[in-house]
Design a protein around this nucleic acid. Structure first.
Length: 323
DNA sequence: AAGACGAAAGTGGTTGA
DNA sequence: TCAACAACTTTCGTCTT
């Protein structure tokens, strides 16, 4: 009992600082200077080197003017997991010219032509590569439809690669697994999307998606942070075109609700919706239960029930609601 | 008339025997 | 595998603004 509590407390205390603020182990200062030319991270307080040998992702040219530094960049594209061969495979140029720009002789030309054909074939040659090629294009389609940013797409792509290696895709549809990895990646990065939203955008039904998602978590040992209603607020608020004070008030309400134990076992979507509803009334930017329920993908009834609980438990009286 | 409310029955997922 | 269960949904009649 006590052990369990100690464990959760420890988890909370270690999870907090490592995710955002970096503290110097010597002086506790939070100001960290990044020295990219030396690949070091140095404490701004005492000068202690916190980490070194960082990979420099910046330019490897020297530039003598602003124009030059704009033009010149690191050679080659960065490694990308969303391209099925990570963007690393060889490409044979389609122009029939040799290295010095001369036209090729007819014999040489037909030779190159055959080489090129085989090269293209071999690029997607193994079944894994074919699967990946298909999956990555589906991932791109789905992610752009949902407006999911590049880093999360890459994360999803990485998860998909892992699930292929674990042979999870076998016997399941590529689409379902892609949708599941994308949903999981959003959750891991604390930018959750409602499961229904992802299911709608792909051609996978909710149930299949949920099954694949759970399989993914189990097989790859992924730890997903409990989805927090607060993570949904900014998206919902912007869909309802609510001002930022309303967002802030909503977050406040959610924090209070959590402290009152109102959030345990409750659907985060419903909580987010109800909190937005309360905040929108308090700050006189009223939205109907139906409007809010729609963007949060819950029913009005759920919004209502949560909202009633919040009002009752937080002691929000009718005065602060009406005006 | 639209929105809010609440009761009652139905649904899908989890848990424990 | 099945029943019990909690949370959520659907549906619908009634009340309020």
């Amino acid at each position: 009992m006590d052990q369990a509590r100690a464990a959760t407390q420890k988890k909370e205390s270690t999870a907090e600082p490592s995710s955002k603020v970096i503290c110097c182990s010597e002086c506790g200062s939070t100001s960290v200077v990044e020295d990219l030319t030396r690949g070091e991270r140095v404490c701004g307080g005492c000068g202690l080197v916190l980490s070194d040998h960082r990979i420099d992702t910046g330019a490897e040219w020297r530039a003598f003017s602003a124009e030059e530094s704009d033009n010149r960049s690191r050679v080659g594209a960065p490694l990308r997991y969303t391209i099925h061969d990570k963007g690393l495979s060889t490409v044979i140029d389609w122009r029939d010219r040799d290295i010095s720009g001369r036209k090729l002789t007819p014999t040489r030309r037909s030779e190159i032509y055959r080489l090129r054909r085989w090269q293209i074939r071999s690029r997607v040659h193994s079944s894994m590569d074919r699967n990946l090629a298909q999956a990555m294009s589906e991932l791109e389609r789905l992610a752009s439809q949902l407006g999911i940013p590049e880093p999360i797409r890459e994360h999803a792509a990485l998860l998909y690669r892992k699930s292929i290696l674990k042979k999870l895709v076998r016997g399941r549809s590529i689409e379902a697994m892609v949708a599941a990895t994308l949903y999981a990646a959003c959750r891991v990065r604390q930018k959750p999307r409602p499961l229904d939203e992802v299911a709608d955008a792909s051609r996978v039904d909710r149930k299949k998606l949920g099954q694949c998602y759970r399989l993914l978590l189990r097989s790859l040992n992924i730890k997903i942070p409990l989805s927090n209603p607060i993570d949904y607020i900014s998206r919902f608020a912007s869909q309802l075109s609510l001002s930022s004070p309303v967002q802030l008030r909503t977050v406040e309400i959610l924090k209070q609700s959590r402290d009152m134990g109102l959030t345990i076992g409750r659907d985060p979507l419903g909580l987010a919706a109800a909190a937005i509803y309360v905040a929108s009334i308090m700050l006189d930017e009223r939205r109907t239960q139906r409007e809010i329920a729609e963007v949060a993908r819950v029913t009005e009834v759920t919004v209502r029930n949560r909202y009633k609980e919040i009002v009752r438990k937080l002691g929000i009286d009718s005065m602060s609601l009406s005006g």
